[in-house]
Design a protein around this nucleic acid. Sequence first.
RNA 1: GUGGGCGUAGCUCAAUGGUAGAGCACCAGGUUGUGGCCCUGGCGGUUGCCGGUUCAAGUCCGGUCGCUCACCCCA
Length: 448
Amino acid sequence: MIPKTRKEKSKESGKTFQTPKGMHDVLPGDQPYWDRIERVVRDLAEFYNFARIRTPILEFAELFQRTAGEETDIVRKEMYVFKTKGGDVVTLRPEGTAAVARAYLEHSLGRMSQPQRLFYIEPMFRYENPQAGRYRQHSQAGFEVLGGSNDPIYDAQIITMFQRLLETLRIKNTNLKINSIGCRVCRPLYRRQLQTYYKTHEKDLCSDCVGRLKQNPLRLLDCKEDSCGRLKERVPNVLDKLCSTCSEHFKTVLEYLDELQLPYTLDNQLVRGLDYYNRTVFEISVEGKGSEVGALPGGGRYDYLMELLGGHLTPAVGGACGVDRLVAVMKAQEIKIGERLSQRVFVAHAGELAKKKCLKLVEELRKANIGASEALARESLKAQLKAADRDGAPIALILGQKEIYEDGVIIRDLRSGLQETVPLHRIIDEVRKRLRDKNVVEVTPIHD
RNA sequence: GUGGGCGUAGCUCAAUGGUAGAGCACCAGGUUGUGGCCCUGGCGGUUGCCGGUUCAAGUCCGGUCGCUCACCCCA
């Protein structure tokens, strides 16, 4: 019988399977990037005293409708909303902050020590068309400071953490953009001024912006159409319109950043896509190589969020960073990951009887906490050693008829090619000793 | 949702309308029990799918699906 090709088989079953649109597999080759990023995020959290929180992937859709804002794209067209058998309207969570705030209220974390410093690194979902750095399922790492006071020190610290994250990952050419979008007192005033300004130029606006003029005037600043862009040159500056408290707050944030010697760019047209932000908003992007994936971290202050969820007014500030985008930028910038040297020993056999003995030897090594790999299913020693080479194992143990007869094992240094026979009962100790000598485990330190 | 580009081996890509190829990767050999380098061989495709034009289609035309980039917006 002729074996069937994959294509023939899939033709019979009528379908070839692949990931749904916008979903992607992270294959073993990319794992070092993910491991590294997760590690750095966890270490940063540890140093800055942030505790991890895990929230469900599924939340009530209303949570985001209330917090992100009915008119935002996330709510209007990007949520994976569906009805459960029980009739609940739920969604795959599109972002993390609202979920963390929900948990804070639900579990009365406001009654614990304040502020609560929390972090997460979890998958998020947006139903949109994929492109560079944009997936329907993607991971975000977020840091949030909830409760306590609205001291600008927290704004500065959150921003610092993301800057440190990028630095530690050795990402170059980052650009921190920062702005303040005011509060309940001053934002409505600014909004009205914007509307007045744009209304006089309504005929020059693109069709999208005509809609924005009514619904969400701040978004007018985001438009990339040429005609709207020209209008932006004369647009009123938010920073001039801030009330004294907001202005003072923003000034202090900038002073703190200066103190930390973090370079930033004031961008008075930076607005965020979610309605719950107030005062400080920021975003860090990459210039040049890797820039096509868009902003990496972004965030800001969201003092009104808890209130939107039915809680008390609770000061909070935070941000999130796209993990998939970090991976993409690291690849684009050709950032190498310091790999750990292999702690493994490779076991090879020569002959059927030896194969059986090797099976046992491998298990004994593993029981002694020594990583062992093998290709015992292969017949030739040549093929086995080739596999050892690919594995990057520093030493190999070889067992054949002769060694069994002598009650010994060949221990071969795969770097130098030198080998000797040692008695079987001493092999574990000998392997341990050699691995200790050989392997200086390289772990890139978090600060250096 | 809208627009552009692209679909040939696991990967990267060739093939004036005329027999589908290369490099890499993978597997096996290069004598008796030893990896990397080298040499030889092998596996692997109904050229995304459906239809049309033609003596003849990977190539031309139509449709369709998928991927990708961009817009909107965002991580």
